[in-house]
Write a protein that binds this DNA or RNA. Structure first.
Length: 213
DNA sequence: TAGGCCATCTGGTCCT
DNA sequence: AGGACCAGATGGCCTA
């Protein structure tokens, strides 16, 4: 399965993150927000002067107001980091689900990795094709010979079983894969994002005639 | 080098 | 209040 080594192991990843966050990384964060908080204290806690020091007339550290502001800043930063962590995990979960989806989708060559958008579109079409196959098989079992005749499938497209079985070469001619929307399709234009088949020689079932993602 | 894809950070919004 | 979800911004990597 074509899973790119994209992220370190979760535990190590967290440590990496902490390391990165502990030192102001030059490239890790966008300029819009990078300067927002500079605080990378060693311990992350506001310093509390010893009792003796407090009496010493000379105040050590920033004045009280500054300290509370600093604390607020620190709390804010801490929450942000936690939110970042959650967001990262969320996206990792999403990617894991996407990988699981990739695993059950046939591709050619087998180790080709579909992009996210391709995976979703392919899955959509694949499900449609499987559904169509089931429908036609059921119809055939019921003796609907006329319905299984070539070209009798949805809108004149060939039977899915014949059209995309076993790594058949994808586009015979442009139209069945081009996703140029049958009439009434709600999807707008067949932009480059909707090109079909995908450019890297992937095996792809025909898109459903009703609508393209 | 431009463009596509991706991971990450971030702030806003909604929900529990 | 805190977490989930979302969309925008940004920078890195890869390929044509």
């Amino acid at each position: 399965m074509p899973v790119k080594a994209e992220s370190p192991a979760p535990a190590a990843e967290d440590e990496l993150l902490l390391l990165r966050l502990a030192s102001p990384a030059p490239s890790a964060s966008p300029p819009s927000s990078a300067g927002e908080e500079e605080e990378d204290d060693e311990d992350g806690r506001p310093r509390r002067p010893q009792d003796g020091a407090r009496r010493a007339g000379r105040q050590r550290g920033p004045p009280r107001a500054a300290r509370t502001a600093e604390t607020a800043q620190r709390i804010k930063r801490s929450r942000r980091l936690k939110a970042n962590n959650r967001e990262r995990n969320r996206m990792h979960n999403l990617n894991a689900a996407l990988d699981a989806l990739r695993d059950v989708l046939p591709t050619f060559p087998e180790d080709a990795k579909l992009t996210k958008i391709e995976t979703l579109r392919f899955a959509h079409n694949y499900i449609w094709a499987l559904t169509e196959t089931l429908r036609l098989a059921g119809a055939a079992r019921l003796g609907g010979a006329a319905e299984t005749a070539p070209g009798a499938a949805a809108e004149g497209s060939p039977s899915p079983a014949s059209s995309w079985s076993g790594g058949a070469s994808p586009a015979p001619s442009a139209s069945p894969y081009a996703c140029t929307l049958s009439p009434g399709s709600p999807a707008g234009s067949a932009s480059d994002a909707e090109r079909w088949p995908p450019p890297r020689g992937r095996f792809a079932p025909p898109p459903p005639p009703h609508r393209c993602l």
